[in-house]
């Protein structure tokens, strides 16, 4: 059994960084970042075969943040893991920085792929997984999607081809926070039933409580869930998780905390 207490602590540290970044950079998408924190903590502090001291490690696992707008949590996780310094993190979204509101390839160590237009990441991941297999590498490709993003047709094209080519080194994780830019996902399109869709497309599925870091670790340890099939983890999450007044509210797709909101958020994240 993995001792999950350090991971819970790490998740809180990541959240503290995220709310601080959003306040300083006056940037949106804090809710989308906060819903991914346990997933990123479990990946970077447990599951991914990577080395912060050697971001080009041969045979490393790949990570694609297909929901690029959630990048505050990813940048914070990478800094926490030692890929780059706090000084770099603190420039986030400021003039002259390398860290934008969506990630760019090689803008900082550990960031290998440009994203920000939704619906691109799963195909990129399928290419990485196919390439790894062709070259005899044990690399796996992990792709973090949002639920709203699953409205893009290109997600389902990649899902089909990934299953056809039996890419069991391809892992999709859906951050299923049930809110997208204009409102509740289920009020906008028929994303549900999500797991049934992935199953119909030939993927092996696990659903998980996405803020139970121990459960996320456990499920990540089991990929591939079935030999010869790509794996998908449908992670049930809450937008804005960890800060009571940001939770499950579409407004925090847009707002950034002011001084008093930042202080209140940090007080909750102690």
């Amino acid at each position: 059994m993995t001792d999950i207490h350090p991971l819970q602590y790490t998740a809180t540290q990541i959240r503290r960084r995220v709310v601080t970044m959003a306040a300083r950079g006056k940037t949106p998408h804090i809710g989308s970042a906060l819903s991914s924190v346990e997933i990123l903590a479990a990946l970077y502090f447990h599951a991914l075969h990577q080395d912060p001291a050697n971001p080009e490690l041969p045979g490393r696992d790949y990570f694609v943040l297909s929901k690029g707008h959630g990048c505050m949590a990813w940048y914070a996780t990478l800094a926490q893991r030692g890929y780059f310094s706090n000084e770099v993190l603190e420039t986030y979204a400021l003039n002259g920085s390398c860290l934008g509101e969506h990630p760019s390839r090689h803008c900082a160590p550990g960031i290998e792929f440009t994203t920000g237009s939704l619906g691109h990441g799963l195909a990129l991941g399928a290419g990485l997984a196919l390439g790894a297999r062709l070259s005899g590498s044990r690399s796996r490709a992990f792709v973090l999607l949002s639920d709203g993003e699953c409205e893009e047709g290109s997600i389902w094209e990649a899902a089909m081809v990934g299953a056809h080519h039996k890419l069991d080194n391809l892992v999709a994780i859906v951050d299923y926070n049930k809110i997208q830019a204009m409102g509740r996902t289920h009020d906008i399109s028929a994303v549900a039933p999500l797991s049934d869709k992935w199953q119909a497309f030939g993927w092996a599925i696990r659903e998980v409580e996405g803020h139970d870091v121990g459960a996320v670790v456990e499920v990540l340890d089991k990929v591939p869930f079935a030999p010869g099939k790509p794996s998908v983890i449908v992670a049930h999450t809450v937008k804005g998780r960890g800060v009571s007044f940001m939770e499950d509210d579409v407004l925090w797709h847009y707002k950034s905390p002011d001084e008093s909101e930042l202080a209140a958020a940090l007080a909750e994240l102690d």
């Binding site: 939704l118 709203g148 409205e151 893009e152 997208q180 204009m182 906008i188 399109s189 797709h253 847009y254």
Partner: peptide
């Protein structure tokens, strides 16, 4: 395609059949 939060409220209230959010698509 799921953008324009708060921008189309007048339109969607007055003419609900003339506004559709098709989702991120």
């Amino acid at each position: 395609a799921d953008l324009g939060f708060g921008l189309f409220e007048a339109l969607s209230k007055r003419c609900p059949d003339q506004f559709v959010n098709v989702g991120v698509a």
